[in-house]
């Protein structure tokens, strides 16, 4: 039986690295007394797969995981038993049983949205903020140099950004960002802020930055759906 589960990864759980998350779920499921299905072959691994990795320290309000278990069981009971064994901060929100042949998360997810709270280094007017955001969005290319293990590389981050909005609340700005994600890569939310500061001279104090991923989506013809939604899900699974 294949389960797709939506969960949070907030509070102290945000420090659990993506690579460690498989083990966290695997052990929780074993403690719950539920037998997982394993991959065939030399080095057997439990069949647990996630969507796009969440950076260490970034909270996720609604993330997804697919888990294969050996025996049929009631969905609600499975969720309840696993929840009991999960560390604080990982809360199961919703789940569904996947139909035969459903595509894995990584094959259907293609967008993510973030909320970023950042302190202003200097107070600015709302008009100034909107002007900056507008100018940034109007650019065709936003080239950012990055330092990787192979030395400096340049990449254009603009194509990945689908939506960017900002609003001033007291001494901080709250940004809502939606980006495209795919096997070819994506943009990191803090990279957008760095370029906003550099290109549009917005006074952002990036030392005091709080990022939350509010959701990951199946985006199709301008519409965001959840990978749990039956129709969107099956339709996409067939079309792509």
């Amino acid at each position: 039986m294949r389960l797709r589960i939506a969960y949070t990864k907030v509070e102290d759980a945000k420090y659990i690295a993506h690579l460690d998350l498989t083990r966290v779920f695997e052990r929780a499921i074993r403690r719950a007394g539920i037998t997982m299905s394993y991959t065939e072959g030399f080095n057997q691994r439990p069949k647990i797969s996630f969507g796009f990795a969440l950076a260490v320290g970034t909270e996720g309000e609604r993330e997804y995981v697919d888990i294969d278990i050996q025996r049929e069981m009631d969905l609600g009971e499975a969720l309840a038993r696993i929840q009991e064994q999960l560390p604080p901060g990982i809360r199961l929100l919703q789940g569904r049983v996947l139909t035969q042949g459903a595509k894995p998360l990584m094959a259907v997810l293609n967008a993510a949205s973030y909320r970023m709270r950042v302190l202003m280094a200097l107070p600015i007017l709302p008009e100034r903020l909107q002007e900056g955001i507008g100018a940034w969005l109007a650019r065709e290319h936003v080239t950012l140099s990055r330092f990787t293990k192979r030395g400096p590389t340049e990449k254009d981050i603009r194509p990945w950004v689908k939506r960017l909005e900002g609003e001033i609340h007291g001494d901080e700005i709250i940004f809502e960002l939606e980006v495209e994600m795919g096997n070819a890569g994506s943009v990191r939310p803090e990279e957008v802020l760095v370029s906003l500061r550099e290109l549009e001279n917005l006074p952002l104090d990036l030392e005091a930055l709080h990022i939350k991923r509010t959701g990951v989506h199946v985006s199709y013809q301008g519409e965001n759906t959840s990978p749990l939604e039956h129709d969107g899900f099956v339709q996409l699974a067939e079309q792509s």
């Binding site: 420090y15 659990i16 690295a17 929780a28 260490v56 320290g57 560390p87």
Partner: peptide, 18 residues
């Protein structure tokens, strides 16, 4: 908590394990 995301393996410094 302000700098924990920036150090290597932050889980080393939290006593919230199972």
């Amino acid at each position: 908590e302000r700098f924990l995301p920036k150090v290597l393996k932050p889980s080393r410094y939290l006593g919230t394990e199972w």
